[in-house]
Computed example of a mutant assay.
Amino acid sequence: MNSQQLKEAIVEYSQSIGIDKIGFASASVFEELKGRLLTQQALNYQSGFEEPDIDKRTNPQLLLPNASSIISIALAYPSKMKNPPKSTKEERRGIFCRASWGQDYHTVLRDKLQKLEAFILELVPEATVKSMVDTGELSDRAVAQRAGIGWSAKNCSIITPEFGSYVYLGEVITNLALPPDQPMEDRCGSCNKCVEVCPTGALITGGQLDSQRCIAFLTQTKGFLAEEFRSKLGNRLYGCDTCQTVCPENKGKDFHLHPEMEPDPEIAKPKLKPLLHMSNREFKEKFGHVSGSWRGKKPIQRNAIIALAHFKDETAVPDLLKVVKEDVRPVMRGTAAWALGKIGDASVLNELQKLREKELDEEVQQEMDKGISMLQA
């Protein structure tokens, strides 16, 4: 079997196991990406979640000796929820981004990649392979762009002609020399919608992201959220889809090809108030299988408090007071005190002032002072 026949066999097999798109690229150094990452590092635009070694992120040879090719795969996920529950005045709801609907995509993609690896090794037992999804060293997007899966858009996503940017990406590095596919031309053109509507101005220019300002990143942090971002969060509990939903290339794109990716509406759009008092065990049982749970319940609960403030949900006052009085975590007490300032009344002011006298944590005191000032005003 020559390299072209091997490639065709891999493509055919990938389709049989439900991979929606596959592309092939050389394993040469990603020089352009390296320059962009060095700029990102110099400007402190990194999130801190990525691999810190830029050489490992851009040189496949450091990850697999004698790496020759990279196989990129894409799986399309839904952009619309069937029968989404409504947020009511009595029961306000938050939202997880689309990439956290259904089963954790890392699990779904790893299963496909492991099957692909096994198939390759069956055909070429002496081959070496190494696969990764998202948390690996390589940039999934840079690989996908080089492999012709789609183009690297101004919103920092890969956009495919077939599925828009609603795709999960993964790759297999191998020492096999496989014919590469042609990279796709950029189709964003003069469109700048994603940059213009980014809630926090995180998209600096087309293709450059200040992760420190990106709502998708901010929803995953565990400390106090800077006040300038709280009003931008809305009811987002995890992630942000704004730069995808405004993209003209995503108009009408909604694929339900994988049952495991279908969202449970009560998990993708959960009620906010019950989240505040959920134990670790309850959180894991309900949300543990979705990608948005990877940082634990703390960021989700903090974001739920901010969402209740966004809605000015007066029915949440007893829940928020309970958090201020009983939660051992300063971030929760402080954020709840701030939220009470947004939605409370004179009776809340008295309660908050009494709690302020007992509070020992300096940051919580500052948030309480903000809440008290808002209530006095």
Rank of each mutant, 00 (worst) to 15 (best):
A99M: 13
I73P: 09
T107I: 15
K112E: 09
L109E: 10
Y77V: 01
N66F: 13
N59G: 02
R57N: 08
L64M: 04
P60C: 04
I70F: 05
E91W: 01
N83S: 14
Y45V: 04
D104A: 04
K89D: 01
S68M: 05
L64G: 01
C97A: 15
R98Q: 11
S100D: 03
K112S: 04
W101C: 05
R93L: 04
I70D: 04
N44P: 11
K112N: 11
H106C: 04
G48Q: 09
R93C: 03
Q46Y: 14
R110L: 15
K82R: 13
N59Y: 12
T107N: 14
N44C: 13
Q103T: 15
I95F: 09
Y105I: 05
Q46I: 11
Q103K: 15
G94L: 00
F96Q: 02
T88F: 03
K82C: 09
E91F: 06
S100A: 15
S47T: 10
I73W: 03
K112D: 06
K112C: 10
S79Q: 08
I71D: 07
Q103N: 11
N59E: 13
I71Y: 11
S100P: 02
P52M: 06
D55I: 13
K112V: 00
Y105G: 01
F49R: 12
L62P: 05
Y45C: 11
W101M: 02
K80Q: 15
S87G: 01
T88V: 02
Q46D: 12
T107K: 15
L75T: 07
S69Y: 02
S68C: 14
L75Q: 00
F96E: 00
H106D: 02
L109P: 03
A76M: 08
S69V: 02
R98T: 06
P60A: 04
N44W: 13
M81P: 14
S69C: 07
L109A: 12
Y77G: 04
Y45W: 15
P78S: 04
S47Y: 08
I54K: 06
P78A: 08
S87D: 02
K56W: 09
S69G: 06
E90H: 04
D55G: 01
I70Y: 02
S100V: 01
R92V: 00
G94D: 00
L63K: 03
C97D: 04
N83F: 15
I54Q: 07
D111L: 08
P84S: 05
V108G: 09
A76T: 04
K80G: 03
N83V: 09
E91H: 11
P85N: 00
S87N: 05
D111E: 14
V108E: 14
D104T: 00
C97K: 01
S69W: 00
P78L: 08
